[in-house]
Design a protein around this nucleic acid. Structure first.
Lengths: 212, 212
DNA sequence: TTCTTTTGTAAAATGACTGTAACATTCCTC
DNA sequence: GAGGAATGTTACAGTCATTTTACAAAAGAA
């Protein structure tokens, strides 16, 4: 997992960096908003931890920019603590908001929550482990192919959201893959056969989603 | 969306209840942990907001119990504010943790984040999400066809305004579509059947509007 | 290599949605 | 209350989207 930490206090940066590195994250750091965006556009960042008050561009501005296109998780960090600020941050797309001073352990925990890093995930009676790629349905282990597992993982990471066939093609086969969107149907069909018909819901004319 | 709020301070309960009701949630309340679990087992609760310190069973115990089987979001509320507590709560399955005192607006925002309902619109007891094209009536999800959803969207964007059949044809089918205006009646009929008869009002000789 | 599994595509079968028309009901006017 | 106009309701067939089946190419395993 790639995390980008942006703060103009170097001490803060150093402390967070060491905490996240210890947990196995790949850490990128920036000391101002523009630098943060630069890194964002050049690396595949999963989570950005942004200080509100930064030179060049403040955390909220950077957050808005990042949230425009990509699906990245953003956590805003700040020493201000009026409710209004927190409200603005959350309204502007931030996924979480933590006041300074904070306990690093808690920040780490919140970061992991955002990234859904608990290794065992569950959708109704189907549970699976991302790292070992094993899947169970009410206790019984299922054998899924690579594509089927990918589908399941993508749905789990985008719960309740409707994903179009094209989105699924992009997410599983890559943005530059040129294939028949109907192929998705077939894989959905195969996945449903294994995990049960009621996990994935069809939205006619739109796409598919988990049913929860 | 059904939310359960559990706190032994009655003032707190009352304030939160009114905030959440105004936003269209169905609110259940409890003043201790056992009562909260009772309600949880008897109702379909989407989100539980639990005070940590409660008689009978504390919030964390209740949270653990709720998280055992079901897909429910839990937000822990507390006046303690050691990082250790927050860490425990989040580790034990809580989805978010907010310190008292807090700003109700922020709590509401966090609750909505948990339920992924940022762009939700409402007409009476019917709520829907334009971006994901999903519709609920008092908590239950409804399946609307494309045309039905379009109708609902147009009415929501033109609240209280009376729209003629021709206007609706133009807005939904496109300006150059040549079709029977009575077709609109049939779609209104089908939409009413799903969302309830009282949402869309007929204006004889003119057209239709929302009734609010 | 040969055999098996997985994958992508195509085409047939199924099922849902749509528009129209015909009939029923309600509302309004006289 | 009768008659006429507008709306509500139902039924149906054409159309379109999805599901399902089948098959051959590709990838992996033996």
């Amino acid at each position: 997992m790639n995390v980008l930490i942006a703060d103009d206090e170097l001490d803060m940066l150093r402390i967070l960096q060491s905490y996240f590195k210890k947990e196995g994250f790949t850490v990128f750091t920036a000391t101002n908003g523009s630098e943060a965006l630069d890194i964002f556009y050049n690396e595949k960042i999963d989570l950005a931890i942004l200080d509100w008050m930064m030179p060049e561009k403040d955390g909220i501005t950077v957050c808005r920019e990042m949230k425009k296109n990509q699906k990245i998780k953003v956590l805003i960090l700040t020493a201000r603590d009026t409710g209004e600020d927190e409200f603005i941050a959350l309204s502007d797309g931030a996924d979480d908001y933590v006041n300074k001073p904070f306990y690093p352990k808690v920040l780490l925990m919140r970061a992991k929550k955002l990234l859904q890093m608990e290794s065992i995930q569950r959708i109704n009676d189907v549970s699976f482990d991302i790292s070992s790629k094993r899947v169970w349905k009410s206790g019984e282990e299922l054998i899924l192919t690579k594509t089927e597992f990918e589908l399941l993982r993508i749905f789990s990471q985008n719960r309740r959201q409707i994903l179009t066939r094209d989105q699924l093609l992009d997410l599983i086969w890559g943005i530059d893959y040129e294939g028949d969107p109907r192929t998705v149907d077939t894989h959905i069909r195969r996945l449903r056969e294994k995990i049960g018909e009621d996990i994935i819901q069809t939205h006619r004319g739109v796409g598919y989603s988990t049913r929860e």
